[in-house]
Amino acid sequence: MSTEIDTQDDDAGLVKTVYRTVTPGYDSHSDDGMNAIGWAMFLGLLVILFPLLPFVALVWGVTKLIEVIAGEDEAGGDE
């Protein structure tokens, strides 16, 4: 015995499956508590990682400089 009921929307012509249930439906709502936790985690990570930004920039700059130097040597050797 199936608990599914197939209904058809006249406007769109699409078939929707409806399930019989004893639980109440879910209405979407904003969850302010979880939003606050998310923002707190983001700001905490930002505070922790912001002081590391100069070191990340230094490593990035050195690797780009090495790529440029190595790229010029390789390009010069191919000609």
Score class of each variant (00 low, 15 high):
Ile48Ser: 00
Thr23Gln: 15
Ala57Ile: 02
Phe42Glu: 04
Leu52Arg: 02
Ile5Asn: 10
Tyr26Trp: 14
Met41Ile: 13
Val15Thr: 15
Val47Lys: 01
Met1Thr: 09
Tyr19Ser: 09
Asp32Arg: 06
Met1Cys: 13
Ala36Gly: 11
Gln8Pro: 01
Pro24Asn: 13
Thr21Arg: 03
Gly13Asn: 03
Tyr19Cys: 08
Leu14Trp: 09
Ser2Gln: 10
Gly77Ile: 04
Met41Gln: 09
Trp60His: 05
Asp10Pro: 14
Leu58Cys: 04
Phe55Leu: 13
Phe42Lys: 04
Leu14Gln: 14
Val22Pro: 04
Asp78Gln: 07
Leu46Asn: 04
Lys16Trp: 10
Ser30Leu: 14
Gly25Tyr: 05
Leu14Ala: 09
Asn35Lys: 13
Gly33Glu: 15
Gly71Thr: 03
Pro51Arg: 05
Gly61Cys: 05
Pro54Asp: 12
Thr3Tyr: 07
Tyr26Leu: 11
Pro54His: 01
Arg20Gly: 00
Ser2Phe: 14
Glu79Pro: 00
Ser2Tyr: 12
Gly71Trp: 08
Ile5Thr: 12
Glu4Phe: 08
Thr7Leu: 15
Gly33Cys: 09
Asp31Arg: 11
Thr63His: 02
Asp11Trp: 11
Ile5Val: 12
Ala57Asp: 07
Asp9Glu: 13
Glu74Ala: 02
Ser2Pro: 12
Leu58Pro: 00
Leu46Tyr: 02
Ala70Arg: 10
Val59Lys: 07
His29Leu: 07
Thr3Leu: 10
Thr23Lys: 10
Tyr26Ile: 15
Val59Pro: 01
Gly33Phe: 10
Asp6Ser: 08
Lys64Tyr: 09
Lys64Arg: 13
Ile37Asn: 04
Ile66Gly: 01
Leu43Ser: 05
Val47Phe: 00
Val15Cys: 09
Glu4Val: 12
Thr63Lys: 08
Thr21Gln: 06
Ser2Cys: 11
Met41Cys: 10
